[in-house]
Amino acid sequence: MNLAAAHPGFLSPTGVEVAFVLVGLATLGAALLTVTTRQLVHAALWLVVALGGLAVEYLLLTAEFIAWVQVLIYVGSVVVLLLFGLMLTKAPIGRSPDADSGNRWVALAVAVAAAGTLVWVVVDAFRTTWIDLGGPAQGSTEVTGAILFRHWVLPFEALSVLLLAALVGAIVLSKRTGRER
Protein backbone atom coordinates (compact mmCIF):
# COMPACT_ATOMS: atom_id res chain seq x y z
CA MET A 1 0.00 0.00 0.00
CA ASN A 2 2.86 2.27 0.52
CA LEU A 3 3.75 1.49 -3.01
CA ALA A 4 1.18 3.96 -4.26
CA ALA A 5 3.73 6.26 -5.80
CA ALA A 6 5.19 3.45 -7.80
CA HIS A 7 1.91 2.72 -9.53
CA PRO A 8 0.45 4.63 -12.39
CA GLY A 9 -2.04 7.42 -11.54
CA PHE A 10 -5.55 7.84 -12.79
CA LEU A 11 -4.38 9.70 -15.81
CA SER A 12 -2.55 6.77 -17.24
CA PRO A 13 -5.01 3.91 -17.11
CA THR A 14 -4.18 0.40 -18.04
CA GLY A 15 -6.23 -1.56 -20.53
CA VAL A 16 -8.06 -3.46 -17.83
CA GLU A 17 -9.03 -0.21 -16.19
CA VAL A 18 -10.40 1.21 -19.40
CA ALA A 19 -12.46 -1.88 -19.97
CA PHE A 20 -13.65 -1.85 -16.35
CA VAL A 21 -14.76 1.77 -16.52
CA LEU A 22 -16.53 1.32 -19.84
CA VAL A 23 -18.41 -1.76 -18.70
CA GLY A 24 -19.07 -0.06 -15.39
CA LEU A 25 -20.64 2.90 -17.14
CA ALA A 26 -22.85 0.57 -19.15
CA THR A 27 -23.83 -1.31 -16.00
CA LEU A 28 -24.62 1.90 -14.19
CA GLY A 29 -26.69 3.15 -17.09
CA ALA A 30 -28.64 -0.09 -17.26
CA ALA A 31 -29.22 0.07 -13.50
CA LEU A 32 -30.47 3.62 -13.78
CA LEU A 33 -32.85 2.61 -16.54
CA THR A 34 -34.01 -0.30 -14.41
CA VAL A 35 -35.12 1.98 -11.64
CA THR A 36 -36.52 4.73 -13.83
CA THR A 37 -38.25 3.10 -16.77
CA ARG A 38 -42.00 3.24 -16.84
CA GLN A 39 -42.38 -0.09 -18.57
CA LEU A 40 -42.23 -2.82 -16.02
CA VAL A 41 -41.03 -5.58 -18.28
CA HIS A 42 -38.33 -3.33 -19.64
CA ALA A 43 -37.11 -2.81 -16.15
CA ALA A 44 -36.54 -6.51 -15.84
CA LEU A 45 -34.72 -6.59 -19.15
CA TRP A 46 -32.51 -3.68 -18.17
CA LEU A 47 -31.78 -5.53 -15.00
CA VAL A 48 -30.42 -8.37 -17.12
CA VAL A 49 -28.03 -5.94 -18.76
CA ALA A 50 -26.91 -4.55 -15.43
CA LEU A 51 -26.36 -7.96 -13.89
CA GLY A 52 -24.57 -9.18 -16.99
CA GLY A 53 -22.32 -6.13 -16.88
CA LEU A 54 -21.48 -6.98 -13.32
CA ALA A 55 -20.56 -10.47 -14.38
CA VAL A 56 -18.09 -8.96 -16.82
CA GLU A 57 -16.72 -6.83 -14.03
CA TYR A 58 -16.13 -9.96 -11.97
CA LEU A 59 -14.26 -11.46 -14.87
CA LEU A 60 -12.13 -8.36 -15.08
CA LEU A 61 -11.40 -8.73 -11.40
CA THR A 62 -10.25 -12.29 -12.12
CA ALA A 63 -13.14 -13.78 -10.14
CA GLU A 64 -14.02 -16.17 -12.85
CA PHE A 65 -16.20 -18.59 -10.91
CA ILE A 66 -18.26 -15.82 -9.34
CA ALA A 67 -18.87 -14.39 -12.77
CA TRP A 68 -20.34 -17.63 -14.11
CA VAL A 69 -22.41 -18.08 -11.00
CA GLN A 70 -23.65 -14.53 -11.45
CA VAL A 71 -24.71 -15.28 -14.98
CA LEU A 72 -26.27 -18.58 -14.10
CA ILE A 73 -28.20 -17.56 -11.03
CA TYR A 74 -29.03 -13.94 -11.59
CA VAL A 75 -29.43 -13.67 -15.28
CA GLY A 76 -30.65 -17.20 -15.63
CA SER A 77 -33.04 -17.69 -12.80
CA VAL A 78 -33.65 -14.60 -10.73
CA VAL A 79 -34.64 -12.44 -13.66
CA VAL A 80 -36.83 -15.19 -15.02
CA LEU A 81 -38.42 -15.47 -11.62
CA LEU A 82 -39.00 -11.73 -11.59
CA LEU A 83 -40.59 -11.87 -15.00
CA PHE A 84 -42.86 -14.66 -13.79
CA GLY A 85 -43.80 -12.50 -10.86
CA LEU A 86 -44.64 -9.63 -13.18
CA MET A 87 -46.80 -11.85 -15.26
CA LEU A 88 -48.54 -13.50 -12.31
CA THR A 89 -49.41 -10.19 -10.71
CA LYS A 90 -50.82 -9.07 -14.05
CA ALA A 91 -48.49 -6.14 -14.33
CA PRO A 92 -49.51 -3.94 -17.21
CA ILE A 93 -47.61 -4.31 -20.43
CA GLY A 94 -46.48 -1.01 -21.87
CA ARG A 95 -45.99 2.35 -20.21
CA SER A 96 -47.62 2.71 -16.88
CA PRO A 97 -47.63 6.31 -15.68
CA ASP A 98 -47.71 5.44 -12.02
CA ALA A 99 -44.66 3.23 -11.83
CA ASP A 100 -43.07 5.65 -9.41
CA SER A 101 -44.66 6.46 -6.09
CA GLY A 102 -45.09 9.90 -4.60
CA ASN A 103 -42.02 9.30 -2.58
CA ARG A 104 -39.81 9.83 -5.65
CA TRP A 105 -38.27 13.18 -4.80
CA VAL A 106 -37.50 12.25 -1.26
CA ALA A 107 -35.95 9.05 -2.55
CA LEU A 108 -33.87 11.00 -5.03
CA ALA A 109 -32.62 13.33 -2.34
CA VAL A 110 -31.72 10.50 -0.03
CA ALA A 111 -30.02 8.53 -2.80
CA VAL A 112 -28.00 11.48 -4.06
CA ALA A 113 -26.97 12.46 -0.57
CA ALA A 114 -25.95 8.88 0.19
CA ALA A 115 -24.10 8.61 -3.11
CA GLY A 116 -22.27 11.89 -2.52
CA THR A 117 -21.24 10.93 0.94
CA LEU A 118 -20.17 7.41 0.09
CA VAL A 119 -18.28 8.41 -3.05
CA TRP A 120 -16.47 11.09 -1.16
CA VAL A 121 -15.52 8.71 1.61
CA VAL A 122 -14.54 5.87 -0.71
CA VAL A 123 -12.48 8.03 -3.01
CA ASP A 124 -10.87 9.76 -0.11
CA ALA A 125 -9.97 6.43 1.43
CA PHE A 126 -8.85 4.40 -1.58
CA ARG A 127 -7.45 7.06 -3.89
CA THR A 128 -4.06 5.47 -4.07
CA THR A 129 -4.85 1.84 -3.44
CA TRP A 130 -3.81 -0.49 -6.19
CA ILE A 131 -5.03 -3.94 -6.97
CA ASP A 132 -2.40 -6.24 -8.34
CA LEU A 133 -4.19 -8.44 -10.82
CA GLY A 134 -1.10 -10.35 -11.81
CA GLY A 135 -0.01 -13.67 -10.49
CA PRO A 136 -2.14 -16.79 -10.23
CA ALA A 137 -5.82 -16.28 -10.84
CA GLN A 138 -7.59 -15.76 -7.53
CA GLY A 139 -11.07 -16.71 -8.50
CA SER A 140 -10.62 -19.67 -10.76
CA THR A 141 -12.98 -22.57 -10.34
CA GLU A 142 -10.24 -24.66 -8.86
CA VAL A 143 -9.31 -22.16 -6.23
CA THR A 144 -12.90 -21.43 -5.37
CA GLY A 145 -13.78 -25.09 -5.15
CA ALA A 146 -10.79 -25.73 -2.92
CA ILE A 147 -11.57 -23.02 -0.43
CA LEU A 148 -15.30 -23.72 -0.45
CA PHE A 149 -14.96 -27.38 0.37
CA ARG A 150 -11.95 -27.01 2.57
CA HIS A 151 -12.58 -23.98 4.70
CA TRP A 152 -16.15 -23.03 4.12
CA VAL A 153 -17.85 -26.38 3.96
CA LEU A 154 -19.85 -26.01 7.13
CA PRO A 155 -21.48 -22.67 6.22
CA PHE A 156 -21.97 -24.06 2.76
CA GLU A 157 -23.97 -26.99 4.08
CA ALA A 158 -25.91 -24.74 6.41
CA LEU A 159 -26.76 -22.61 3.44
CA SER A 160 -28.25 -25.60 1.70
CA VAL A 161 -30.63 -26.02 4.62
CA LEU A 162 -31.56 -22.36 4.28
CA LEU A 163 -32.26 -22.83 0.63
CA LEU A 164 -34.44 -25.81 1.40
CA ALA A 165 -36.38 -23.76 3.95
CA ALA A 166 -36.83 -20.98 1.43
CA LEU A 167 -38.03 -23.49 -1.12
CA VAL A 168 -40.61 -24.94 1.24
CA GLY A 169 -41.64 -21.48 2.38
CA ALA A 170 -42.16 -20.23 -1.11
CA ILE A 171 -44.26 -23.25 -1.96
CA VAL A 172 -46.40 -22.92 1.16
CA LEU A 173 -46.89 -19.22 0.65
CA SER A 174 -47.90 -19.38 -2.93
CA LYS A 175 -49.96 -22.53 -2.67
CA ARG A 176 -53.69 -21.97 -2.97
CA THR A 177 -55.57 -23.66 -0.21
CA GLY A 178 -58.58 -25.72 -1.02
CA ARG A 179 -60.89 -23.29 0.70
CA GLU A 180 -59.92 -20.46 -1.60
CA ARG A 181 -60.95 -22.37 -4.60
Binding site: F10, E17, F20, L54, I131
Partner: peptide
Protein backbone atom coordinates in the same frame (compact mmCIF):
# COMPACT_ATOMS: atom_id res chain seq x y z
CA UNK B 1 -6.12 -1.56 -11.20
CA UNK B 2 -7.17 1.13 -8.85
CA UNK B 3 -9.43 -0.06 -6.06
CA UNK B 4 -11.37 3.18 -6.38
CA UNK B 5 -13.00 2.08 -9.65
CA UNK B 6 -14.88 -0.95 -8.36
CA UNK B 7 -15.54 0.79 -5.05
CA UNK B 8 -17.09 3.83 -6.68
CA UNK B 9 -19.05 1.65 -9.08
CA UNK B 10 -20.38 -0.34 -6.12
CA UNK B 11 -21.37 2.84 -4.30
CA UNK B 12 -23.19 4.18 -7.31
CA UNK B 13 -24.98 0.92 -7.96
CA UNK B 14 -25.97 0.75 -4.34
CA UNK B 15 -27.42 4.24 -4.41
Amino acid sequence: MHLAYPAVLAVLLFC
